[in-house]
Simulated assay, not measured.
Amino acid sequence: MIRITGLIFIILLAFGCNNGDKDTVTAEMVKNPVSGKADNKQMEMPEITFIDENSDNPKYFDFGVIIQGERVVHTFRFKNTGNDDLVIRSTSSTCGCTVSSYTKEPIAPGKTGKIDVSFSSAGRKGRQHKAVTVLTNAQPASKKLVIEANVVVPN
């Protein structure tokens, strides 16, 4: 009985592996200009580009030395350098001391928007490194913003 059950299992396994092409998804079927071959080579996609004339790294900001208990805010500016409306879906931070707000309406190609990142240094001391993840409808969908501060305790 065990041999028959084993034989049936092997037969089902062999016939269960269908290598037919009719159910296969190919790269040509995917309409994603990043991961597949799209029929429309001019596919419209938004693109988020962070801008800051005063910095070589517009996705990073250092508040420098701040006093414990201080709340500081930095505005990250960005531009839609793609050719379709850019939408920020959400932002999230690595801790509750860092809060962000952003432009809610779609950003047309060539237009700019902003993300305000607020850091509360209450109860913190020393070098602080915090990240904010920005999720958009662009490719790649996720971008990371970083803020830093050196929090000192008042005498």
Rank of each mutant, 00 (worst) to 15 (best):
D116C: 09
G20V: 10
G113A: 05
G16W: 01
T24A: 12
N137M: 03
K143M: 15
D23C: 01
E105V: 10
R77C: 09
T94M: 08
G6P: 00
Q68I: 02
L13E: 05
R124A: 11
M1W: 06
D85K: 09
E44P: 01
D85W: 09
S100P: 01
V34M: 07
G6A: 13
T136M: 00
K114A: 15
K22T: 10
S92I: 04
T103V: 09
L12G: 06
G20C: 12
E44L: 13
I147V: 14
P109A: 00
T91G: 05
N80K: 06
A149L: 02
V87Y: 07
S55N: 07
I11L: 14
V99F: 06
T112M: 15
F78H: 02
T94S: 15
L86I: 03
N32S: 07
K125Y: 15
A108M: 06
T91W: 04
S35G: 02
G20N: 10
N80C: 00
S55P: 00
T75W: 12
P58D: 01
R127V: 13
M29L: 06
D85Q: 07
F76P: 02
M45T: 10
A131G: 12
Q68C: 08
G113W: 09
Y60H: 12
G16H: 02
R3I: 11
N32Q: 01
K79F: 08
P154H: 00
A141M: 05
I147F: 05
D21L: 03
E148F: 06
Q42G: 04
T94P: 11
C17L: 13
K31L: 09
N19F: 13
Q68R: 13
V134Y: 04
T75R: 14
R77H: 14
D116F: 05
D23N: 13
M1V: 11
S100A: 13
V153Y: 14
G96S: 12
E28H: 11
I67Y: 10
I48H: 02
N83Y: 02
P140V: 03
V134H: 08
